[in-house]
Write a protein that binds this DNA or RNA. Structure first.
Lengths: 91, 91
DNA sequence: AATATATATGCCAATTATGGCATATGGCTA
DNA sequence: TAGCCATATGCCATAATTGGCATATATATT
């Protein structure tokens, strides 16, 4: 079944609508990080972090790059920082 | 219970993570609209549209203004357009 | 080959979202 | 006051999300 425009956009916002995943995005705003670094910085289970990364990647908000045992994740678009700053004004 | 920063931010994204509510935002990008206009333009039940507006307003993404029988809604921040355009690139 | 380390996946119970239908509220007009 | 109209709320069954625990995969090292 083919998803339409608003359904796809909804998936992106669903991916962002979670405290842990927002923290991941905030970390990646400072540049590429491997999973182990993210796990060290955030207080969540490794398996949970991994699922969060899968979800963010599934909507193309982030991309990954493998290097030996490690997988490095980074942001896939540069508009996040501005929008997040704007939302901070609302909060 | 006091919600922390990421929980509040999550609420904003949850409010956006719905096709109907995203369509409402798109309509409001063109300026203030009353509920009846939104109901006319989108193919959803009036009660459902109303609930969507309540949800968007609860996280301060939109604001309202009453005029007689009508309630006019408009965006509460100007960063939506840029971010939405950016997401269109991802989709 | 065996082991260790980094990352990903499967399962599942508890919580939360969705959207329809009925109904309530509250301002207008006659 | 009565009735209409625009908007909001309550209830509810179905569906989706959440996050923990166990486990799988895949690469590196010895």
């Amino acid at each position: 079944m083919d998803k339409n425009f608003y359904d796809k956009k909804t998936e992106i916002f669903k991916a962002l609508a979670n405290p842990m995943r927002l923290q991941i995005i905030d970390l990646l705003l400072n540049g590429e990080k491997c999973v182990c670094e993210i796990v060290k910085e955030l207080n969540y289970e490794q398996s949970h972090i991994s699922k969060g990364l899968v979800k963010l990647k599934s909507v193309h908000l982030i991309k990954d790059r493998k290097d030996g045992l490690n997988v490095y994740y980074s942001l896939n678009c540069d508009c996040m920082k501005d929008f997040f700053n704007c939302l901070n004004g609302i909060i």
